[in-house]
């Protein structure tokens, strides 16, 4: 039994320490966004954020996660209150089948946390580990740029509200 902090909530997990985070998220915590794609760290479908960084949950065992904060796509926002990155992907209609999209969004989110105004080349380099088979790449790139703009605006308006 260990404690795992996911999307701000503490969870008591009864699983072997070698269990990959992906299975804990999907099976124990009933979260959908992180997807099984290869189990080998080759495709990025399972990407989540751990302590601000994009991590492949299929090759990240529980034993590595003591005391760390896990964020999944569910933790960013909802359909009615979407996070900037979610709004951006909706506005750009950046999905076909969408199976890879949660992983794409989490890796992009980690990039934007670190670098709020990435260049196109930086976005491409960052997303290199993640595969899309439908060929939605152009829209994904547009959506990440849009998310950067939305976050910028959100920050600006938040600053205005707080009088900064």
């Amino acid at each position: 039994m260990m404690t795992l902090k996911v999307n701000g909530q503490e969870n008591h997990i009864d699983a072997d320490p070698d269990t990959p985070l992906l299975y804990v998220l999907r099976d124990d915590l009933k979260l959908n966004a992180a997807k099984f794609g290869c189990g080998l760290g080759q495709c990025g479908s399972c990407t989540v954020i751990v302590d601000g960084k994009a991590v492949l949950s299929c090759v990240t065992p529980l034993v590595l996660l003591e005391g760390k904060q896990v964020t999944t796509l569910e933790g960013l926002g909802t359909v009615s209150a979407p996070a900037p990155i979610q709004r951006a992907f909706m506005e750009e209609q950046a999905a076909q089948c969408g199976y890879c999209i949660a992983g794409m969004m989490m890796r992009a989110q980690a990039l934007l946390l670190r670098n709020p105004k990435p260049t196109d080349a930086q976005i491409r380099a960052e997303l290199q580990p993640n595969l899309c088979r439908c060929g939605t790449h152009m829209r994904i790139l547009r959506a990440v740029h849009r998310a950067a703009r939305l976050m910028d605006t959100a920050d600006a308006s938040a600053n205005e509200r707080s009088g900064q």
């Binding site: 959908n32 569910e74 992907f89």
Partner: peptide, 20 residues
Amino acid sequence: PRVDIPAKVTGGEAYVQDMR
């Protein structure tokens, strides 16, 4: 806008893989 995209970008149940 496609009706299936909101669930897909927020972690909703969108696939047979997500059935429980």
